[in-house]
Amino acid sequence: MNEMTNPTSPAAACGRFEVAVQRVLDGDLPIDALSDPHTESCPACREMAGATVALLTGLKSLPPVLPPANFADRVVPAVIAERRQADFRRSVRIAVASLAAAVVVAFLATEGRQSPQPAVASRSPDPVRIAPPSVTKSFAEAGSAVVSLTKRATEESLSPARNLFASLDTVRPTPAAVPVQTDLRPTSASPVEPITNTAKRALNLFIRDVGGFASIPQQKS
């Protein structure tokens, strides 16, 4: 059993007293705990007890450290200004991100319309493709597209009429037409005969109706 493990040895008593000093400084023991009989026979621990009392006395008499009187007056405006700057920076970041997203979307849309190539091919560095599309060019392309669509629709509408006229021009009378039924009366004398007959019938009906309307007052009179 050595000095430290022997509870009755002076070293063990010094160790216990050192623990008591720390507990007094922690506030767990009152300052009376420093009045240990061990200090009567141990000068080192007696000086330690005196230093502890001095430290406690000094800590009590330490002057408080107070901030300057106008400290809050300076801090609060600085805090508010910093918060405004932070809000402004956040707004700028959002605006820049939105603008960048719009540019990227426009670029991808233009890129997809101009060069429908595989993705691998589009990764090759090409400064011409990276250039952003101009508004004038976009309007010109849109106008050309409208013109081409209108032209194509017009062509599709006119082509049957053209074919009809072309077929009329190319009609040739049959050179050796043999009448099958000689007793049949021709249905029409000219290509417009059905129209003229219809017009005649309509005119006759009109004249008959007008004549009927005209005869009504005469009968009354």
């Binding site: 300052i31 007890a49 001095a54 406690l56």
Partner: peptide
């Protein structure tokens, strides 16, 4: 040399409060 060397150190604190400053 700021340690009181006379008497027992705890006696010097008789006038002070018994609760240490933490």
């Amino acid at each position: 040399g700021l340690v009181p060397s006379t008497d027992h150190p705890a006696k010097k604190q008789e006038a002070d409060q018994s609760v240490p400053v933490t």
